[in-house]
Structures are given as structure tokens and as C-alpha cells.
Simulated assay, not measured.
Amino acid sequence: MGRGRAKAKQTKVARELKYYSPDTDLRALESELHGQSTKPATRATHDDARDADPDDYDDWSPPQR
């Protein structure tokens, strides 16, 4: 006995999570998907380019035939 209340609460929480639909900022999502930034652009300096991580994609891509 006692398991009924706990299981009922878990079921209630699971149902709320399943059917919960938060308000979505579609404009922010659209700008993020299109790569537009809402922040003002800044100029990159020579130091910024040196500190950037190298792109390791070439190490993982298959050899060209």
C-alpha cells in the first residue's frame, strides 16, 4: 500500500510534461536558423583569428577518389 499515490503523481507529472507546449518565440528561432545575429557585428582582429580553434573536419572526412 502507498504505491498508488506515488504512481498517480508520476503519471500526472509525465502527462503534464508530454502535453506541455511552451510559448515559442518564432522570430528568434527563424533568425537563429538563418544565421542572423541580433548583436552588432564586431571586427575580428589578428589575435582572434590566431586563437580560433582549427577545423578538424578534414581529419574525419573520407579520402577523395
Score class of each variant (00 low, 15 high):
Ala49Asn: 08
Gln36Glu: 15
Arg27Trp: 08
Arg50Glu: 04
Leu33Trp: 04
Thr42Met: 06
Ala49Ile: 06
Ala6Asn: 04
Glu30Asp: 15
Pro54Ser: 05
Lys7Asn: 12
Arg65Ile: 12
Asp23Tyr: 06
Leu33Asp: 04
Lys39Asp: 11
Arg15Phe: 12
His34Cys: 14
Thr11Lys: 07
Arg5Thr: 00
Asp59His: 05
Asp47Asn: 10
Asp23Asn: 11
Pro22Val: 00
Pro40Met: 02
Thr11Tyr: 04
Leu17Ile: 03
Lys7Leu: 06
Lys9Glu: 02
Tyr19Asp: 09
Arg43Asp: 14
Ala8Gln: 07
Glu32Val: 10
Ala52Val: 08
Ala14Met: 01
His46Ala: 11
Ala41Tyr: 02
Pro40Leu: 03
Glu16Cys: 05
Asp47Ile: 13
His46Val: 11
Pro22Met: 05
Thr42Glu: 02
Ala41His: 05
Leu29Asn: 05
Thr11Val: 10
Gly4Met: 05
Thr38Trp: 14
Glu16Val: 05
Ser37Pro: 05
Leu17Ser: 07
Asp59Ile: 03
Thr45Cys: 08
Pro63Lys: 00
Asp56Gly: 03
Pro63Gly: 04
Tyr20Phe: 14
Met1Asp: 07
Ala49Gln: 08
Lys18Ile: 04
Thr42Ile: 02
Arg3Asn: 11
Ala44Gly: 15
Thr11Leu: 11
Ala8Val: 01
Asp25Glu: 04
Tyr57Asp: 00
Arg65Met: 12
Thr11Cys: 10
Lys9Val: 06
Thr42Tyr: 03
Leu33Ser: 11
Ala14Thr: 04
Asp47Met: 11
Glu30Thr: 13
Arg65Ala: 11
Arg15Lys: 14
Leu29Arg: 07
Arg43Trp: 12
Ser61Gln: 03
Ala44Asn: 15
Gln10Asp: 01
Gly2Ala: 12
Asp25Gln: 00
Tyr57Met: 01
Glu30Gln: 13
Asp53Cys: 09
Ser31Ala: 15
Tyr57Lys: 01
Tyr19Pro: 00
Tyr20Ala: 09
Glu30His: 14
Glu32Ala: 13
Leu26Cys: 09
Asp25Ile: 03
Thr24Asn: 08
Pro40Val: 02
Gln64Ile: 02
Ala28Phe: 04
Arg27Ser: 07
Lys7Pro: 00
Asp47Arg: 07
Tyr19Arg: 12
Thr24Glu: 09
Thr45Met: 09
Gly2Thr: 09
Leu33Met: 12
Asp58Ile: 00
His46Pro: 05
Met1His: 13
Glu32Phe: 13
Ser61Ala: 08
Asp23Leu: 12
Tyr19Ser: 12
Gly4Lys: 10
Asp55Pro: 00
Gly2Asn: 08
Lys39Ile: 13
Gly2Phe: 03
Lys39Pro: 04
